[in-house]
Amino acid sequence: MPGSVLRIVKTYQCLPLLLAVLAGLVLTGCSQPENIITSVHTLNQRIASTLDTDAVQLSYSPRPAPLPAVRQLKPAGQPVGMSLLTSLRLGHCNVGQQIAQRNSALGRLEDGLMRLQGDIKLLQGLKECIKQPKSAPLVDELQRAIEAKSRQLQFDTAHALATDKALRNALDIGAEPLQKVDPAAFNTALDALTQIVNWLQQPGPQPHLHEWREQLAQSDYLNRLSRSVVSMRLKLRQLQAGLPPLTRATGCDSKGVPQRAKVLRNVFMQFFINDVQADLALLTTQFQQYQPLLRQLADISPQPALTGYLVRLSEQGQQLSKVSKSFVQPWQEFFANCGFTPGED
C-alpha cells in the first residue's frame, strides 16, 4: 500500500512536465514549416504587437498567370509523317536505323527536347544519305523529305518547348516558396538550364542533353525561387498597404519621442533590416542570374503565349526590388519625424 501511494505521488509530480512536453509536441505539429517568406510574417506580427493593432492579412494574391498548359502551347498542324520516310527504304544509310528507332515503341514515347534532338539527327541523317551513291534513285524523294523536315524545325521546337516535362518543371511557378536559399542547389539547376538554352540556340547532337534534363526534372529549386520572389513582392505590398501612418500611430507627431516609437524603430531594424532585407538580397541576387535565361527562352519560343509568360516571369525580380524600395519610404519618413538615425541604439 505505501508503495502504491508513493507511485501515485510521483506520477502527479511528473504530470506538469508531461503536459508541458505534450503541449510542445502539439504546437510543433500544428505550426507551419518556416520558409524564406516567414520573415515577412514575423515582421507583420511584431509591428502589430507594437502598435497594438491586428496583423495585416497577408496572402498569395493576386496570383500571377500560370505557365500555359501543354494543350495551349502545342503547335497546330501535322509533322512530316514517318510513313513517308519509312517508305523510302533507306537501309543503306545510317538514317535508316534512326527511322526504325523512331518507329519503335520506345521511339514513339520520346517527347520534348529529346524528340527535338531526334528530329535534328534525322534531318542531318537525310542530308548525309542523299550524298551516297546508292541513294541516286531516291534523290528527288530525299530532297523533298529534307525540305519538308527543314520547314518543320520551328514546329518541332514549339512542340518540344510545349511538352518537355523537365523544362516545364523549371519554368513553372512553384506551389511553395523555398525553405532557404541554397547556392549549391541553385547553381546545379541554373547550370543545367543554361546548357539547355545554349543548346536550343544551336541545336544538334548532344550526349549530355538527357543528363541536363534529368537535373531539371529532379529539382524544384527554380520554380520555388520564382514562387518566393512573387510571394515576397505580394506580401510586402500588402503589408505596406495595411500599415497605419507610422508617425501618428507612435505619437511622434507630438512633443518628445514616445517609448512605442523607440520600440517600433527597433522592430524595423531587427526584423526588416536584419531578416527581411537579408532574404530579399539573397532572392534578388539569384533571380538576377536566372532572369537572362528566361529572356533568351522567350526569344527562342515560337509560341506567343509562352513568350508572354516568360517575359512576365523575367520581370518579377525588378518588380520585387521596386516594391521593397517603396516599402522602406514610409519608414524613412517615420525615422525622420521621430528624429531617429538608422543604426543608432
Rank of each mutant, 00 (worst) to 15 (best):
G3Q: 10
I8D: 02
P16K: 10
T38K: 10
Q45A: 10
R46M: 09
S49K: 01
S49W: 01
V56A: 11
S61I: 08
A65S: 14
K74R: 12
P75D: 01
M82E: 14
S83G: 09
Q101G: 12
Q101R: 14
L113H: 12
M114I: 07
L116A: 11
K121T: 06
Q124I: 03
K127S: 13
E128W: 02
K131T: 10
A136H: 00
P137Q: 01
L138T: 01
L142G: 02
R151M: 03
R151E: 04
F155H: 12
A158K: 05
T163Q: 05
L171D: 07
I173F: 06
P177M: 03
V181S: 13
D182N: 07
A185M: 00
F186D: 00
N187M: 10
T188L: 06
A217P: 08
N223A: 02
S226H: 04
T247H: 02
T250R: 05
V257H: 03
Q259H: 06
V267C: 04
Q270D: 00
F272S: 06
A281C: 15
L282F: 09
L283S: 13
L283Y: 14
Q286P: 15
L294G: 09
A298V: 00
A305V: 05
T307K: 14
V311M: 14
L313Q: 11
S314E: 06
A336F: 07
N337K: 14
T341S: 14
P342R: 13
E344L: 11
